[in-house]
Amino acid sequence: MSLLRVSDLRVRYGAIQAVRGISFQVEEGECVTILGANGAGKSSTLRAVAGLHRPSGGSVTFGSQVVTGEPAHRIARSGISLVPEGRQVFGTLTIRENLELGGYVQSASANGEALERVLGIFPAFRQRLGALAGTLSGGEQQMLALGRALMTRPRLLMMDEPSLGLAPIVANQIFGILTEIVGSGIAVLLVEQNVHRALQVASRGYVLELGEVVLEGTAASLLADDHVRLAYLGHGMGEAE
């Protein structure tokens, strides 16, 4: 049984239907990516799964629980962590407080252990635990947001555009860490504009266009697909040959 099973999910903002009945699964320990252009419905899908926006139809099942339409804080407690687009760290709070809030639902002792574990992944924060998160650079904020999401040992980590607005070298670091996370057995659902990077980390992918899944398959098959190459990788059949 899949870890996350989304079927016929629909999301609308007023009159606009952003997601038009999509279905996909994420297996335990697997990294899956959702590809698509701006406005294809990728973020809306993640937001609906995380409970930030109530879906207008369809169902979301996590493990054995149906979580469709549950409020975000309940979904977070059930083991899904979303690193939202644009980081969204708590700028007026310190790094330590940000991380501790990531483990808000667990006991103080568990939080202490989790903090050590996360600082093991992001050693640069150890010296600066008292610094305000708002003073960090974009890349550091992205790492903090990721660390914050890892505080609870989520069973499913969702990341929305982690490399957005970051220098390539910083984005590479983030993806390096992401690969480690996948290796540690946490399932990851990744939305990313950089299709190349995404398909390197992920084992499978779905392509969204105008709120519908138009293509799905293994990373390798998607990388080889003409449509994907033409539309998202910036080169056509001729160039590749």
Partner: peptide
Amino acid sequence: LRHYLEDPARGTAGVSQPDG
């Protein structure tokens, strides 16, 4: 209207859609 009437036929106001 935006919040409670979701039928485009009734001329609901345009709402910006988050991308992705």
